[in-house]
Design a protein around this nucleic acid. Sequence first.
DNA 1: CAAATACATCGAAACATTTCAATATATCAA
DNA 2: TTGATATATTGAAATGTTTCGATGTATTTG
Lengths: 91, 91
Amino acid sequence: MEVRKVERISKALSDPSRILILKQLRQKEDCLYCHEIADFIDLAQPSISHHVKQLADADLIVVEKEGRNVKYKLNQAILNEYVDFLNTLKV
Amino acid sequence: MEVRKVERISKALSDPSRILILKQLRQKEDCLYCHEIADFIDLAQPSISHHVKQLADADLIVVEKEGRNVKYKLNQAILNEYVDFLNTLKV
DNA sequence: CAAATACATCGAAACATTTCAATATATCAA
DNA sequence: TTGATATATTGAAATGTTTCGATGTATTTG
């Protein structure tokens, strides 16, 4: 995995709100609706939108439109690649 | 692993210079001297010092003084804990 | 179609990070 | 002990991130 990609994913993972979103995604069995995020993150709507965008830009989540709503899924493949990279750092 | 800790490690990993330091640490068989960093990172000495501090504060590297010199080693245990956390995000 | 709902984008304020020159500290060498 | 070397700290400029109010854009519902 390229340094740029590692950097972007790490940056996406370096904020408590975004970590929480990923954790809740896991709790919800890998399918979270945008409006559900407001239930566990106390931020204004544009801020939540911003955080979701960071995760999407890092390819950590896949965004699916469902009419007015937006649904998120974890991108396991990217997470696996990131973990693989981290493992190559070990001796 | 706590969200705070994940945040701090991710932040440490979210800079190209710091990623490079960890990669070179691996190349050097897990034992890098401070002055060697200047060979592959084109930044002023205080900047390198700053980056190394971020890695140390995140516990990603262990710092050992050797007289005038400083030696770094990867903290594999923390990296493992971080990887374990990332794996819990998967379904 | 009009109003309501869900989400995104813009612009600006507040805050954090990165970078370097200058300076400090600690150790080694003569 | 004096000078040289290795690294850390300080302070400030430049840049990036986070946050929100205001507003824009789809989509659904009445």
